[in-house]
């Protein structure tokens, strides 16, 4: 294109191959390679007859899954996990979506205070408020019950739904609602025919992301669940914790089942949302 030897180049566009790009590709590559090996190790071990110190297991078997299902009451645990997951998703959408609507559509005195209330649970590690919350739930005899686990999981989920949906609703032109009213629609009809259909992608995404978070949420469930309300992630913790009395393959079989439950909603969610949204959408709403 140009004179040979011209050392200067036009503004380098992203994707151009330079030394820094190569270094970054290597960093990302090493990271993903280790991650893949880590996951593969767990998966492989769950199918191993025995595996000690060699590169690959001595033989393969599926019997650890049957063993794990039997020993760890896996069916009960799965039932609890999905009951908690479904309840938290439905409740946090029902509670969070209206609040998001109000925040998206209205400027009012004290709005910053309300925003702060919704932001705080996301700026604190769950275990920090989990301990007083569990203590308070014990006081009302709610700890160690399914209701207690669900309530505890709502604390981070409702703010998450609000933070995710508020910018989403802001993007929906308010004139659409006004137009519907001009066409004679009542408030419930505006919601049913205009807002909910337009919000559907956002609601779906928020619901799936809440489900993923609940499945992975260890601390709050751990602190509020009794033996009968363990979700999969908590049950997995206990089996690892009590390692030594159980074969490692059985523990890893459980880990694989846990991975699958987390991946399915994730794969569905990725069809609807940009991965960067999954982390959190706090950036716009952040304390300005």
């Amino acid at each position: 294109m140009t004179i040979a030897g011209a050392s200067e180049r036009p503004v380098r566009r992203a994707g151009g191959l330079s030394l820094t790009s190569i270094v970054l590709v290597v960093v990302l590559g090493v990271f993903f390679l280790n991650l893949a090996a880590l996951i593969l190790g767990v998966v492989l071990n769950s199918f191993a007859t025995s595996w000690f110190g060699s590169l690959v297991p001595d033989g393969l078997t599926t019997r650890w899954y049957a063993y794990a299902a039997d020993t760890f009451q896996l069916l009960d645990v799965l039932r609890v996990t999905f009951t908690v997951g479904a309840a938290v998703v439905v409740l946090s959408l029902l509670i969070g979506a209206p609040a998001a609507y109000a925040l998206a559509r209205r400027q009012f005195p004290g709005k910053r205070l309300v925003m702060l209330l919704f932001l705080l649970p996301m700026l604190l590690a769950p275990i920090t408020y989990g301990i007083p919350l569990a203590t308070a739930l014990y006081q009302f005899d709610l700890a160690g019950s399914l209701a207690g686990v669900i309530l505890a999981n709502l604390v981070p989920s409702v703010p998450f739904v609000i933070l995710l949906l508020t910018p989403f609703i802001e993007q929906i032109d308010e004139n659409l609602e006004r137009a519907a009213r001009m066409c004679g629609a009542s408030t419930p009809r505006v919601f049913a025919k205009i807002l909910i259909p337009l919000m559907a992608p956002g609601l779906l995404a928020a619901g799936l992301l809440v489900l993923i978070r609940v499945l992975a949420m260890f601390e709050l469930t751990f602190l509020t669940a009794g033996p009968g309300e363990q979700t999969l992630v908590v049950a997995l913790y206990y089996t690892v914790f009590a390692a030594g009395i159980r074969p490692t393959q059985a523990i890893d079989a459980m880990a694989v089942i846990y991975m699958l439950t987390a991946f399915v909603p994730l794969l569905v969610a990725l069809r609807f949302v940009n991965p960067t949204q999954i982390v959190a959408r706090i950036k716009q709403e952040n304390v300005r």
Partner: peptide, 25 residues
Amino acid sequence: AGLVPLTSGRISIDGDRIDPLPPER
């Protein structure tokens, strides 16, 4: 401006070629 590289051709000012220069120069 130098924000997009040319595929071919040349740009010069008073006889000096500028198309190989980055925008900041």
